[in-house]
Design a protein around this nucleic acid. Structure first.
Ligand SMILES: [Mn+2]
Ligand SMILES: [Mn+2]
Ligand SMILES: [Mn+2]
Ligand SMILES: [Mn+2]
Lengths: 220, 220
DNA sequence: TACACAAGTTAGACAAGTCTAACAAATATT
DNA sequence: AATATTTGTTAGACTTGTCTAACTTGTGTA
């Protein structure tokens, strides 16, 4: 059985491994920063996780989830995203509110609960942010997505997920009338600062920053 | 902000206060037994709760929730019973399974969540065990109930709640086809051992023990 | 290659929650 | 009233998760 805290560390490592798929190892400082703790604290926990064979790592080396660790972490992520979906779909939470509460709910221990919840939600594939919900067996649905910053002028695309799930970004998207499923055309890309001009349906064209474009996943 | 553990102590004190309404104070050992910890542990926690003005008590004396303590405890109980209702109504949990999971869910911190959940469940008044669900303002719906052991021969009554919520008792009730709302007639009360003979609708009469009769609440 | 700086670890401390063993107070029994 | 029993507290220890401050290792740059 894993503690609340151990679970958070495992999920953090999984999330970090998604950040650059071809090099899924994390560093101590990186992990500590993600969790909002000091590096010394992360080092201590790492020893415990290694002891439990949930990660492989050696002093001053990189951290990698073991198969077992990845399974546990995936199960927590599954719960997180199912709860987010529940809050959004059934309890009318907005997509910038769901994360914080799911952060707590993901630690509830009950196999039956998570599976019944999934059934109750009609086996959703994606959470309110467009992120794939792992299946009970650990499989993660694939999505065909690319960062908006990689799209060139003239292309039409559809929003499929957000990379940044911070409340401030999500609220900005709401203000722009952009949500999962929104379609728009990229009119122009400004080389100078990476900003781009987009046009949603029949609306007025508007300009968004490079930071914006690097925070949104779309499908061409 | 209260810790998970502090919340459990407060709820325990509230539950104990319900056990004999006219004398709502609890003792250290009683409380420790209820929570499954040692008396020494309970004493330590008591000092902390007193420090936070959630209980009144002095060395070797009885423990009583303060107004503030009662409010906090009631809020936790409210969450517990709403979650039980959710699990039972929406996720097809049986009434002997809900308690354990609700024990975890009751600690989720989100005002919005509990209120939205209540709305989603259509403002239920009672949980799957027939216990009243406190309102957001702290009010607790009243129920007209009496222990089955206080019913005399010849009376007809309806099950309104269970006093004992252990899985073993609840499963026994299921086996007997008794649930909240079941009506039956008390045919005979045996003075010798307090057992009684009851008849549900058109079923065969059956005998139940005094322990059984002291675990079930009915309405005459 | 040397050195500076970034990355990571260790030592020692602390708070929360728990325990055991020993003790003290209150209550019940004779 | 004296004593026995129950009830509750204290002291000291342990675990988990966290920190700060000091130290060590690894790496990139000159
Ligand atoms: Mn979490
Ligand atoms: Mn999400
Ligand atoms: Mn609890
Ligand atoms: Mn209940």
């Amino acid at each position: 059985m894993l503690s609340y805290t151990e679970e958070n560390y495992l999920k953090a490592l999984l999330m970090l491994s998604f950040q650059n798929e071809e090099r899924p190892e994390a560093g101590t400082n990186e992990m500590a920063a993600y969790l909002g703790v000091k590096p010394a604290t992360a080092t201590d926990m790492l020893k415990k996780l290694k002891e439990k064979e949930l990660v492989t790592y050696q002093k001053y080396g990189k951290i990698l989830l073991t198969e077992l660790g990845r399974e546990k972490a995936t199960a927590i992520l599954r719960k997180h995203r199912l709860w987010e979906t529940f809050l959004y779909e059934k309890l009318d939470f907005s997509w910038d509110e769901v994360h914080e509460v799911a952060e707590q709910l993901e630690h509830i221990q009950s196999e039956k609960l998570v599976n019944k919840l999934e059934e109750f939600l009609d086996f959703p594939e994606f959470d309110p942010h467009g992120d794939p919900i792992p299946k009970a067996n650990g499989d993660i649905p694939a999505i065909d997505k690319v960062l908006l910053s990689e799209v060139t002028a003239g292309e039409v695309c559809k929003v499929v997920a957000v990379k940044d799930t911070s409340a401030v970004f999500l609220q900005y998207l709401e203000k722009l009338n952009i949500t999962i499923g929104t379609k728009f055309k990229v009119l122009e890309v400004i080389d100078f600062d990476g900003s781009l001009s987009i046009q949603i349906e029949k609306e007025e064209p508007r300009s968004v920053s490079m930071k914006f474009a690097e925070s949104l996943f779309v499908k061409r």
